[in-house]
Each structure stands twice: as C-alpha cells, then as structure tokens.
Design a protein around this nucleic acid. Structure first.
Lengths: 209, 209, 209, 209
DNA sequence: GATGAATGAGTTTTCATTCAT
DNA sequence: TATGAATGAAAACTCATTCAT
C-alpha cells in the first residue's frame, strides 16, 4: 500500500499529534489545520479517523520491517555480535521514531480495533522471528543457552526501551539532569539504554543460569 | 486524604474503565451508569473528570507507599534477599493493580496535567528511594557494585513489568499459550516475570561488570 | 414583611452578587458560600431564587419609601427648594444603594416575573406621587409651569441618575479621570450629577417654555 | 469585518432574544431554533456564545458610526441646529434599534468581558467625539457656554433615552396610556423624548448658567 | 480532487431544587 | 432549624462525518 504526498503529510502530522495528545485527545480538525489541508480531506483519503490510525501503522510498520531485515543479511558476524547490532539498531529506531512508538505503546494498553491489534501483532511477530533466527544460530553454535523464553526476552527488550521514551522526562528529574541540553541528554539516554540492554541480553542468553 | 464509600465506589469503577478504554475514551456518563450513581455526583464529589483521575492516583498512590514500606522494616534479610522480596512484592502489586498501572503507563505517555505529572513523579520517587536504601546497604557491605545507575535500573524494572501487563494478550499469542486458562496463564506470567527480573537485577547489581 | 438576621444576611449578599454578575449570572451556591450559610437554607427561607430576588425588592423598596417620605413633611421650604432637596436625597440614595439600583435597572430591561414588575411599578409610583405633590404645590403658587409631563420628568431624572451609576467606569475613562481616587471620584460624580439634575429640573418646570 | 447572510440571520435573532431575556437567560439552543439553523452552526460561525455577543456589537457598532457621521457633513446648519438634528437622529436610532440598546444597557451594568467593554467604550467615544465637534463649533461662535462637561451631557442624553426604551411599559402605565395603540404610543414617546432632550441640551449648553 | 458548510450525536459541567436525617 | 447528599434537567460546546458544489 502506497501513500501519496498529501497522505504522507497527513499521516506524519497525525502521528505527531497522536503521540503528544493521544488518539482521542486529538481532533481531526486539529490534524487538518496543522497539516494545512482541508478537514474533509481526511475522510476523503482515509475514510475515517480510525482508518487514519491504521494507516500510520501500515506506514511505519512497513518501514520497520525493511530496516530490521537488513541486519540479518550480514553473515560475517557472530550471533552475539548480531544481537549487539540488533539492540543498537532497535534502540536507534525507537529513538528516531519516538512518536510512532508512543502511539503503539498507548494502543497496546487499550482495547482498540481488531485491525490495529492485528497490525501490532504483525510488527511484534516480525521482530520476534528476527531475533529467533539469531538466537537459534547461537544455540546451534553453543554460544547461547537452549533454555530461552523468547517472548519474555522480547517483552523485556521492548518494555525497557519503550519505558525509556515514555518516562524520559521523569528519568531526567530523577537523575538530576534537568539542566543538560536536550540533544546531549538524548544521546546519553540512547547510549545508556543500549549498553544496559546488551548486558541484560548477555545474561539472559548465557549458559550459566 | 480520605475517600468515603461512595467516592471509593466511583474511583474503582472509573479506574476499571479508564484502564480499559482510556481516559478520553471513557465518558463520565459511563462511569456513573456502571457505578450506579447519578451523573452529577461525580462533579459533586470530585469537581471534574480530571480531578477524578487525580483522585485515582491519590487513592492508589497512598496504598502503594504503605505496602512497600513494610519490606524495609525486616532487618534480618541480606540486601540481595531484600531485592528479591522487593521484586516479588512489586510484581505482585502490579499484577493485583493492573488497571491502575495501565492508567499510569498511559498517563506517562501523554502530555497530561501538572497534577498527575506530580503525582506520578511522587510515586516513582518513593519507589526509587526505597530501592536506593537497599542498594546502598549492599554497596556498603560490598555485595553490590558501586557503579549503579539507579534510575536506569528502575526504568528497566518498571518498563519490563508494565510492558508485561500491557502486552499480555500479545505475549499469549506469541508464546502459543492461547488455550491455557486465564488464572493459570496469569500465574505463569507472574512467576516468569519475577524470576526474570531477579536475574536481571543480579546482573545489573553485580561487581563483575 | 419582616426578615430575620439570617434572611437579611442572605439578601444583602445576594444583592451584592446580583448587582455584580446579574441574576442569572449568580448561582445560589455562590450566594450560600459568600453568605456563609448552607445552600438549602435559601430554598428554606425564600422558597426559590426568584423569590429571593423579590425579597430584595421588598427589603429595599420598603426602605426607599420611608426615607423619601420624610422630605415632604418639612413644610417650611418652597416647592423649588423641595425639588432641590428631593434631587439631593434621591441622588444620595442611589449612590448609597448602588447595588440595588443596578439590579432594578437590569430587571426593568428584562421580561421578568409579574411580581418583580409589580414591585418596581410600586416603587416608581411612590416616587412619582411624591414629586407630583411638590410640583402640584409649585403649580398652585405659580412657580412651576402647568404644562409638565410628570412621568417624562421622572424618566429623565431616574434615567440620568441610573445611567451614571451604570456607566461610572466609562465616564471615568471618557473624562480622563482614571488616576483619581475612588472616593474622590465618587464625590465628584455625586455633586456634578446633583447640580446637573437641579438645573435640568429648573428648566423643565419653568414657565418660559 | 463582514458577516454573511447566515451570520446576520443568527446575529439578528440573538439580538432579539438577548434583549428580551438577557444574555444568560437566552440559550444558544433557543437562538438556533428561532433562527432555524443547526445548533452547532453558532459555534461554527462565531466560536462561542460570548463571541456571538461581541459580533452583535461589531455589527451594530459599525452601523452606528456610519449613520451618525453623515450628520456632520452638512455644513449649512448652525451648531444649535446641528445639535437638534443630532438629538433627532440619536433618538430615532435608539428607537429603531431598541434591542441592541437594551443589550448594551445591560452589558454596561454587568462586569462583562474585556472585549465587550472595549466595544462599548468605542461606541461611546465615537458619539462623544461627534458631539464634541459640534459643541466646539458653537463655543467658537459664542453660541454655547465654554463651561460644558461633555461626558456629563452625554450621560444625561443616553441615560434619559435608554431609560425610556427600558421603562416604556412602566411609562405607559404611569401615564395612563394603556389603551393607546402601540405604534401611536411609540410615536408619542419619540416626539416627547426628542422635544424634551432638545430643551435640556439648550439649557445645558446656554451661556446663562 | 477539493472545499466550505452543515449536522446530529456526543461531550463535560453547572444549575436550582429536594430529600432524608 | 439545619445540613450534606442527591437529582434531573439543562447548559455550552466539540466532535467526526457528510453533503452539495
């Protein structure tokens, strides 16, 4: 499914607003005004507000898949190195697409439409399969423990990462970093999170349980 | 701040609905109907829908504090054991108060009112201080590493835990446990999560970095 | 009709608020709070909000009558002097009971209940009869013109006077007296209005038409 | 600022109702029903009930200015004649736009929004400047006294005039003219008021104080 | 494709009044 | 007398969607 320029314009504006103020908290009128398009165009292009949300998932979910799949193609790395790269890429993606991940986090918390549920499950499944392959490699080579609960690891990974973008402002206050510049703080966070997750994965995948 | 029976009744009904359908997705009319009280009573007792949300935070935040503080009073345990108990209690609390934690997760993701932000920060600060004390004990006795980023550990803990209650249904499907009974699945989840978190904490607090 | 202390307390608070914010713009809850009494007491003492308004008219209308009647009893003054005193007293009364006259002005502008209409008419009639007597005296003695439209004179008198209390703040700005102290300005206004009205009455009652 | 047909329709209906029942006493639903338009159109066109009130002031205030300015352009009349014409025009305007002047009178009596206060002050200032010019002419030519309090004269003029339209029904009863036909009574009132005001102005502007 | 106007159902909140005690 | 609780009606406003052009 391809979106034309105008649709992308609407999608990106809607994504920003949904992330900031929630789906219900954002009116289509607001989206139209911010995107500089006519109110009726949203219905025209997407059918309804709900469908617009789904379009966001399609738009971002599509990007997600492609970008993550590239990791696996590199055959020279060890499974452990691949996990490290995966974590790096994953954290980078979440940080670069914060609004979308905020929306997804919110949607997972709510009884939403069947369609969004399906789309979220798709994204999760894709990521899971990706990791599954790497872990499977590592298990075959003996590097990783054979006693690994994959969905649990996934939940820990995405849980910690999403929580970081959700609670960024609280983290700032609790760490006493309120005076640090936004960009600097952002980098600090990204590095800490990446390092932390790598360490956690090492533990959870290791043989000595 | 104390709430009378009617207020508690409203608060608990609102909590349930806010968790299910979101704050904006729930109408006060709906709350009133489900709680079996007159619509105007909500304004009468809480002033507004926003204030009702704050009341939920006060109501649950209060309970949170008391129950967690009891852990520390036991002086016979080692810091490592205390951490284990803390994790157990924390996971139990989150599981027993799922609706509230769902609401809090959502609120953290949205630009909400100053008051709720303050109340969330309070709860987070209380938990942080609690863990800080235990870790400090462990650091003095040499059990724990002195190089510990407390807020990061907190974020990992609450992130993973909250993610579990948020993505429970997805976890079920991805693990192929759709046929398992709700209660059994709930227990399984609780145990896995607890065990997992204990292991992560052991790693993150250990000296061998 | 006599009012007890509590009723007077409510009446005076209501009068203040009705004058400030209008009858519809004032809630009974607000009156109760400001008067420091229980909300239900207003219904208890007066029956309804409408009846409370009528009570204000009875309360002030009663005062009005007594105070004005005293003017006539003095038999030593000439009709012209009496008119002057009447104007002085009238302006003083309006200035000292601004809130009530504001309410009355507003009520006259609106299709109100039969009762308030009747009460206003009563007050107007009383004043009219008072002036009528004085003018009649003056006509008999030849001082005043026999061609006098009494209600028209009345309307001019009360119109100008009421307009002054209604447009006080606008008058201040238009006269460039914004820096003058409130009390000083009040006195200035009172004197100017009195002098002005006396002059107008002299003209309207004079023989040379 | 121009209003389209629908907006004018709403404005005129609202004006009628506000004059009859007061601003607070009129519901937007009522306005919509009487104007035969959808309830939501009022918000759509004006934003809010308050803004609708302001629109009435803009709509009528605009008309006021234009119509009054034409008086001055006639250069052949003496200042005294101009004053007479001004009074005639002014009274005619008030009588032809009774609803608007009722609303304005009420608004002046209440602590209203900044915007309406500003708009009222504008209208008053415009009228004041108009009269100021004429009086200034008369003072230069020696016809009028140099000791003239302009705002006070204005207040007398508008006070008396407004009072007439406000107390029309009371005037009718007090004058014993209840059986007269509405139109006839209206004309009688207009003529009396005009004549009366001319006489008053003559006195207040004359040299012999 | 595009738009301004329009709509009906919905929202939260406020109100005057009444009730049980 | 007095009161806190309760209520139903009504208020203004917002919303997503649709329609005619």
């Amino acid at each position: 499914m391809k979106f034309n320029d105008k649709q992308v314009q609407i999608i990106e504006e809607a994504e920003k607003l949904f992330a900031q103020k929630g789906f219900k908290g954002t009116s289509v009128r607001e989206i139209a005004q911010n995107a500089g398009i006519n109110l009726a165009m949203i219905s025209y292009y997407f059918g309804s507000k709900d469908k617009l949300l789904e379009a966001i998932f399609v738009y971002r979910g599509h990007n997600t898949k492609i970008s993550l799949e590239e990791i696996l193609k590199n055959g020279k790395m060890s499974p452990a190195e691949k996990i490290d790269v995966l974590i790096e890429k994953y954290v980078q993606k979440i940080f670069s697409q914060k609004p979308f991940y905020k929306i997804m986090s919110k949607e997972m918390l709510t009884n939403n439409t069947e369609n969004t549920e399906k789309l979220i499950l798709e994204i999760k499944t894709q990521n899971l399969e990706l990791i599954a392959k790497i872990i499977s490699e590592g298990q075959k080579s003996g590097e990783f423990s054979t006693d690994v609960d994959l969905p649990l690891i996934m939940a820990t990974l995405s849980g910690a990462a999403n929580n970081f973008i959700a609670t960024q402002k609280y983290y700032r206050k609790l760490s006493g970093l309120e005076s640090m510049k936004e960009k600097e703080f952002e980098n600090l966070l990204l590095n800490k999170l990446t390092k932390n997750l790598k360490r956690i994965f090492k533990t959870l995948l290791s043989n000595d349980n």
